[in-house]
Design a protein around this nucleic acid. Structure first.
Length: 495
RNA sequence: GGCGCGGUACCCAAGUGGUAAGGGAGAGGUCUGCAAAACCUUUAUGCGGGAGUUCGAUUCUCCCCCGCGCCUCCA
């Protein structure tokens, strides 16, 4: 089996092979850093993470470049409103974005690059386009001449076919020769950030940064370009036009797009009150790992319906997997190695790999692993699970988790590191923290402190002091730690 | 209007020209100092509506209805 991916360019699921050797070169459209990224943005970023994790799992070496759009109308407007420089203003949201990525267990791309650090390169690309006759100047701005690029529309399948009656034109729109033409370089406006260029001071158009940075770091032709489905037109279409016009070579070989997320069956919007950032959800007591699971659990070419109930369901699903792994780790099994169990593990692995090979069908990959869980639990309950299969089962789980990355519980540690765990005292000042999955803990306990209390409780239990044992259990519960007594010992986890 | 993605049980959600994965929830059960949890079993003659092709369609074709995205700077 090998990986196949749905390529927007052809509209087909195609077998994926890198252009050269074992290295996959990927460009992914990152956020515009004018505010916190919302949960819909993160669906796309989780998709890109699953993609890169599975490519790595499949043995490829990666070079992923992600852009940070730190100059556009919104960043300029908000920075000015905040009375900060564009650089300082956007840096705050870049920092927040990186924290959010860590919380969601998103692997860092090999490079994250800011648009404003590449203006010189962008200017060169505009000059190249001008020399080849694909760009023209008009009133201090520079435009791309769409009519000069016959393949325009091949990605989005849109045939604009000349001027359209009633096409929207911004009030402050610059003069263009053709309504289809798009701006490469915007003439400077007084008081706005601007850069010097041979064709006059100004700032780059949106699409230019991606063409420039992609080709700079990945070469004129690279393997994968991806983003949300709303970027297909005009953003990615324009990137293709700019890049291929300049180089005469194909730009990206595979174009992958994640469908949008909806909230409660409706589109997410601030006015509808269903607009969430990751931090909103964390403040309500939801876990980053559950959010990651939910975002990853639906194949990316389908719309995903995000609900708070769904986050809870995801959390429960992770717990089921975690419980299974706990049993595999801790329970005593009958000696011996029944080959049929080792084969079941191998089959589960084969199934989840086949599912991911098939255009990253994460839902099917989940089914494969849950079937293994049911198999294993049944056998354990009946005392038939052989010790010799323990490692094979654990191995499949850990392979699966290299992609899904939800079983290692790092939520608490990470939230605490970033000051995002609130205690009940803190929660009083912040009403939103009171809703959601339960009350905020009354205090913060380190893992060591929990272990210490657990040891005390265990010795109390062993000597029959159940009142004392129950008191400790209550105390820990109050601190957000749940204890479970099992045959294999007492385990604890954070709420 | 054009292009695209969808409509599957109470909720989330796979999938196939041959008779509906998986998760959550509910119900029954097992286990347990207690509790909580865990685990097991179970829950769609049905896949938006209609017509057609076929021995057979949820799966293919056509028409219709509904949701969502894009149609010049939104992931």
């Amino acid at each position: 089996m090998s990986l196949s991916l749905r390529n927007t360019l052809s509209g087909l699921v195609e077998e994926f092979k890198p252009q050269s050797g074992n290295e996959v070169r990927i460009y992914t459209c990152g956020p515009t850093v004018y505010d916190y990224s919302h949960i819909g943005n993160f669906r796309t970023f989780v998709f890109q993470d699953v993609l890169r994790r599975y490519l790595e799992y499949s043995g490829y070496r990666l070079c992923q470049v992600m852009n940070l759009t730190d100059v556009d109308d919104k960043t300029i407007r908000n920075a000015e409103a905040a009375g900060e420089s564009l650089r300082d203003y956007t840096q705050k949201f870049i920092d927040a974005f990186i924290v959010d990525r860590e919380l969601l267990n998103l692997e860092p791309p090999e490079k994250m690059v800011r648009a404003t650090d590449h203006v010189t390169d962008m200017v060169k690309l505009v000059e190249a386009l001008e020399q080849k006759g694909f760009a023209y100047r008009s009133e201090g701005s520079v435009y791309f001449r769409v009519a000069a690029f016959p393949e325009y529309g091949k990605l989005s399948k849109i045939n604009l076919g000349g001027n359209r009656a009633g096409a929207r034109v911004d009030a402050d729109e610059y003069e263009k020769g053709d309504v289809r033409d798009f701006v490469l370089w915007k003439k400077a406006k007084p008081g706005e950030p601007q850069w010097e260029a041979p064709f006059g001071a100004g700032r780059p158009g949106w699409h230019l940064e991606c063409s420039t940075m992609a080709m700079k770091y990945l070469g004129e032709t690279f393997d994968i370009h991806s983003g949300g489905s709303d970027l297909i037109f005009p953003h990615h279409e324009n990137e293709i036009a700019q890049s291929e016009a300049a180089t005469g070579k194909p730009f990206a070989r595979f174009w992958l797009h994640a469908e949008h997320l909806m909230v409660n069956g409706e589109k997410m919007s601030k006015s509808a009150g269903n607009f969430y950032t990751l931090r909103d959800l964390i403040a309500q007591g939801h876990r980053p790992s559950a959010i990651r699971y939910l975002l990853a659990s639906t194949p990316f070419h389908k719309p995903l319906n995000f609900t708070l109930d769904g986050v809870h369901q995801a959390q429960r699903s992770i717990e089921r997997l975690g419980n299974f792994r706990f049993r595999l780790t801790m329970e005593q099994f009958a000696a011996g190695a029944d080959e049929s169990f080792v084969e079941r593990a191998a089959r589960a692995r084969q199934e989840f790999e086949a599912a991911l090979d098939n255009n990253l069908n994460t839902a099917e990959a989940l089914a494969a692993i849950f079937n293994l869980v049911a198999d294993g639990n049944s056998a354990m309950d009946q005392g038939e699970f052989p010790d010799g299969a323990r490692q094979a089962f654990l191995d499949v789980l850990s392979r699966w988790d290299r992609i899904f990355a939800v079983l290692e519980d790092r939520d608490y540690e990470r939230l605490r590191r970033h000051g995002l765990v609130s205690t009940r005292a803190g929660a009083a000042a912040e009403p939103s923290a009171a809703s959601g999955d339960g009350r905020a803990p009354s205090m913060l306990l380190s893992d060591e402190a929990v272990e210490q209390r657990l040891a005390l409780r265990n010795s109390a239990r062993q000597s029959g002091k159940y009142a004392e044992s129950d008191r400790i259990r209550e105390e820990l519960l109050d601190a957000g730690v749940i204890l479970e007594d099992t045959k294999a010992g007492t385990r604890w986890r954070r709420k």
